[in-house]
Design a protein around this nucleic acid. Sequence first.
DNA 1: CCGCAGCTTTGCCATAGATCAAATAACGAC
DNA 2: GTCGTTATTTGATCTATGGCAAAGCTGCGG
Lengths: 212, 212
Amino acid sequence: MLLAQPFGPSVIIQITKACKVEQLKQAIGQMINTTPAEMGEFLRRCEPQTHKKRANLSSAGTVPNEVLFIEQGIIRVCLTDSSGVEHTIHFALENQFICDYSAFLRQEKSLYDLETLEETRLVVIPRSAIEWGYEHLAEGDRMGRSIAEFYFIYQDNRIKNQYIRTPKERYDNITDVFPNIHNRAPQHMIASYLGITSVHLSRLKKESYRKT
Amino acid sequence: MLLAQPFGPSVIIQITKACKVEQLKQAIGQMINTTPAEMGEFLRRCEPQTHKKRANLSSAGTVPNEVLFIEQGIIRVCLTDSSGVEHTIHFALENQFICDYSAFLRQEKSLYDLETLEETRLVVIPRSAIEWGYEHLAEGDRMGRSIAEFYFIYQDNRIKNQYIRTPKERYDNITDVFPNIHNRAPQHMIASYLGITSVHLSRLKKESYRKT
DNA sequence: CCGCAGCTTTGCCATAGATCAAATAACGAC
DNA sequence: GTCGTTATTTGATCTATGGCAAAGCTGCGG
């Protein structure tokens, strides 16, 4: 139906490209108002990619120069401590943006590794596209603000939970934040996210069904 | 020296007002470019206040409709759990913005209490001023983005530390984030911020100087 | 300067969670 | 399907931290 409109050839090309990143387009459309030209120009600077399961997308020690938008799949963010233990810090799901945003903003080396847990279709948004957006999209900064605010709220919630909930309570409510995570991530990663060992989580679960 | 410029009477009034909130003005000036008119209009919508030590600035259960900017003093943010225990979630220092920003954005009831630990001079920035800023400051959204990004980085850092550092290590480095906090907040609040009891912190400190 | 209220320290014991090790169980590559 | 790898469960300790209680400290209001 998009093609029903009287566009010239160059616009057609843009649309073809945009269709590949339909979900990102919608996500942006929900945050801000753009003209079709703006949207096309922005999306043209992004690149859709598909990665297989357990693929490494970004490694600690490198400066992140792109933000990823997940169309289908799941990515885990993980941090390795000085003893070599990996801590799963975050899971990123469909229609979410992900990267070490802190390092991205500061243009410093990331401490995080990003890795797919399933075959994942995503859109790479390079720093240049983001900078272009801030300069040329009428509401570019507003979009950046929305995204930063969204993740601020998420983090605030995490921090709150850390103070007032036990690991067990956090486990029981994890699907509020990561729906269906139990079928998409192995237990030891979930345990790690919760800040406990997989051994301990196993015991917590056991206690739980013993009581019921 | 500001007054040396050839301003008319109405501008003088704005400047007089602005002088009361000189620090906020500078903070904004460091984030974005504004015309003097914009800046004056914005600051005119803000109100400087002074509160004495241990004053309650905002209570859990109310919808926050203002952001505070601290010119001089210190505020602690605290969260009361279902057993009535108070957890100190955050300290806000000079030249920082503070409020339950998550609740502010969502326009929901806050879970946090805000209270001064010293006599505190601050500027109240009402929601209406912020909305005005997003509509009328050329770089309003950019400022909002900067602020959200700044606190995102702060939170990211906290979360990281929670995974890879022990409470003791976090204690030893707390002045990185809150310089001079040892002279400004009682130990039990610091312990609470770190997620341990004041009793335990006392023992950690003891161990520490026993080893040296 | 006194006295009380709120901190901080200390001691003793309880508990949550970690670590190590071994036994199963589930999963993926061929 | 089989085999090797990787997860999960279970058991036996060990450690960090919490809870309670009492004993010093400290600082502020009269």
